[in-house]
Amino acid sequence: MAHTAHVHGQHYSRADLAAAARNRLVSVGEQWTPLRSTVFQALADFDRPVSAYDVTDAVSAASGRRIAANSVYRILDLFVANNVASRVESANAFIANAHPDCPHDCIFLVCDRCGRATHVDDDRITGDVRSAAMAAGFTPVRPVIEVRGICANCA
């Protein structure tokens, strides 16, 4: 996947973000089922990366019945594979993608105190990482770049 400098839309309202996520899944031939919608809404309601179990608990509370964690895991994996959500690897957590209609490599700044992750787009850096991998004879699929530290609010 070639990644170049780009401008993307930021979906600020909850409804706009959910519509963008739905449109993204539908555009790749996936269905936007009621459970997928509920999982996405639960994920988008968090202001920090969360575990699949956190999402499962939120979906279970919203639906009034216990939802199986493995169902939520499958949906989150589908979301990540289709750019609807991102996985913060170092925290084993997920976060809704604020612009699912824009494929790119993400850089996350993860605060070790509050747990929030700031998403940074810098195609130059991620392009350099991809180029370095290819120069070493490696085919990059999904670079993961995360910086752990302390955010400005916690400093």
Rank of each mutant, 00 (worst) to 15 (best):
A19P: 05
A58L: 11
V26A: 07
R65G: 10
N82W: 00
T118D: 07
V28N: 01
D123H: 11
R130N: 12
R113G: 13
T118K: 10
N83R: 03
I125M: 15
D77F: 03
A44S: 13
A42S: 12
D128N: 08
I67V: 11
R36T: 00
R124M: 13
Y73S: 15
R74Q: 09
R130Q: 15
A91K: 12
R130P: 07
D54A: 12
E89S: 14
D77V: 03
S60T: 14
R22N: 06
A117D: 12
F79V: 04
N97M: 02
R24Q: 04
A19I: 09
N83G: 06
R74C: 05
A91R: 05
A69K: 08
V59R: 07
C114Y: 08
I95E: 14
I67T: 13
P49D: 11
A19S: 15
I95M: 09
V88L: 03
L17A: 00
A81T: 01
F40V: 03
V84F: 00
P34T: 00
A98D: 13
F108W: 15
V88P: 04
G64V: 04
R66I: 15
D128Q: 07
D57T: 08
R87K: 15
A44L: 02
V28Y: 06
D16I: 05
S71Y: 06
A98P: 07
D105P: 09
L43T: 12
F94R: 00
D45H: 06
C102I: 04
A98R: 13
I125R: 11
A85F: 13
H104R: 06
D128W: 06
F46M: 07
P103Y: 00
R36E: 01
S86V: 02
A85H: 13
R48V: 04
S27A: 12
V129M: 00
R48N: 11
A58M: 14
D105Y: 09
R24A: 12
A96L: 02
D47R: 06
I75M: 01
D121T: 11
Y53D: 12
F79Y: 13
S71R: 05
D47K: 13
R87Y: 13
A68Q: 09
S60W: 12
A20M: 08
R36C: 04
H104P: 05
A20K: 15
P49C: 05
G64L: 06
V39G: 03
R65P: 04
D54E: 10
G29I: 02
A93G: 01
A117P: 10
R66L: 10
F40R: 02
D54G: 04
A18F: 00
A117L: 07
T38K: 08
P100M: 01
D121G: 09
L25K: 00
L109I: 04
C114E: 09
V120S: 05
F79K: 06
S60V: 06
R113S: 13
R48A: 09
A98S: 10
F79I: 02
A98Q: 07
A85N: 09
P103Q: 12
A62R: 14
E89W: 08
L109V: 03
V129H: 03
T126A: 02
A81C: 00
